[in-house]
Simulated assay, not measured.
Amino acid sequence: MFAVYAAEPNPDAPLDALRVGERPDPEVPDGWVAVSVRAASLNMHDLWTLRGVGIKPDQFPMILGCDGAGVLGDGSEVVVHGVVGDASVYGDETLDPKRTLLTEKYQGTLADTVVVPARNVLPKPDGLSFAEAACMGTAWLTAYRMLFTRSGLRPGQTMLVQGASGGVATALVALGTAAGMRVWVTGRTEEKRALAEELGAHRTFESGTRLPERVDAVFETVGKATWGHSMRSVKPGGTIVVSGSTSGPDANADLQRLFFMQIRVVGSMMGTRDELAGLLEFCRLRGIRPTIGTELPMTEAAEGFGQMLAGETAGKIVFTR
């Protein structure tokens, strides 16, 4: 079958490990289902896979793609949930010590077919295209969990999203606005800040700018480049929710400020199947649709990967079949 995959780990030149071509047709174990993929979105996790982060060398070649949308054998249109874990034991499958994501142990969604546990597919809402539905399973689910499960925010409070144009950031803006938060956003360029305003952000600021007042919560996916600003921008007793560090970890965690201001730092990783169901229903009720910055056929995957590596994102990058 056709697939977009990582041939081997390449920490220094990840795009050199990217391949577009044929891979063996997958087997379908008992309790699993085969999804004929119509669309899959790109995530930073795919670049980490190309670099060999979070995956053992003997797992290569690995088909990329943590999330997607497609059709089951009976014609049902579904959204793929990319976290494979034991919810029956842990309740929250993201807390299963043996949980994994697609592309870490199991082959991913950037292919003609992806095979996942039967519980890892949910009905695709009629109001979403396959390309839009393919954005939900990773970036939008991550944003939903950060905002509604981990932050403790209430409608009317102020949130700051660091980095204006990535998939998680644009989802946070849309979800936060729809939930009644006051949404502030930072962005490196005027174009990125303009996108955030189009999505409903109440105010935007250049990266690192001193804010007019401190916020109730900061949402961090950037890491070292924005961490100091996040620590200075949150109220005493406020919260910083972290789901990534694309610019690398910060060796200077500013622990004095952390304990003196009693700041809560909360980690957040992906989300559960139930949270994905909640996200899909919330978007249906509020008429929310994800922002797609680039849509390409899977055969042109290298172009989309290049855009993400260069930071040239304006919403989600989606590949279609």
Rank of each mutant, 00 (worst) to 15 (best):
A174N: 12
G163T: 05
L172N: 05
T158I: 08
M159Q: 13
L175C: 01
M159G: 14
T142N: 07
Y144K: 01
A143D: 06
S165V: 05
V161Q: 03
T149G: 02
M159C: 13
A164Q: 06
G152H: 10
L141H: 07
L147V: 05
L172I: 08
A134V: 01
T142H: 10
L175T: 00
L172A: 08
G156L: 11
L141D: 02
G167R: 08
T142I: 07
M159R: 02
R150H: 14
A178F: 13
A179V: 02
P155A: 15
P155H: 12
A169M: 13
V173Y: 05
A134R: 02
S165Y: 10
C135N: 00
F148Q: 02
V173K: 05
A134K: 01
M159L: 14
T142C: 10
S151Q: 06
F148H: 04
T158G: 02
G167H: 12
L160W: 11
C135Q: 00
Q157K: 04
L141E: 07
A171E: 11
F148A: 01
T177M: 02
C135T: 15
G176I: 00
A169L: 13
G166Q: 13
A164C: 09
G156Y: 14
G152K: 06
T158Y: 09
T142D: 09
G166H: 13
T158F: 08
T177H: 08
P155G: 09
V168Q: 08
A134G: 03
V168H: 10
T138K: 10
F148K: 01
Y144A: 04
Q162C: 09
L141Y: 09
R150A: 07
G152T: 04
Q157G: 01
V173E: 02
V173P: 02
Q162L: 15
C135G: 00
V161Y: 05
Q157M: 10
G166N: 13
G167N: 12
V161R: 03
T149F: 07
A169R: 12
A143Y: 09
S151L: 05
G163C: 09
L153Q: 08
W140H: 15
M159E: 10
A169V: 12
P155T: 07
L147H: 05
G156C: 11
A171V: 09
F148R: 01
T149Q: 14
G163L: 05
A171H: 11
V161P: 03
G156K: 13
M136N: 03
A178G: 10
L147N: 02
R150M: 12
R154W: 06
A171K: 09
A143T: 00
M159K: 02
A139I: 04
R150W: 07
M146W: 00
T138E: 14
A178K: 10
L141R: 06
R145W: 05
L141I: 06
G163Q: 04
A134W: 06
V168R: 08
G156H: 14
A179K: 04
T170S: 12
M146Q: 05
S165E: 06
A171Q: 12
A164F: 11
L172M: 14
T138I: 14
T142A: 08
W140K: 00
T170N: 04
A171L: 11
M146L: 03
L175E: 01
S165I: 05
L160D: 07
A164S: 11
A164W: 10
M146P: 01
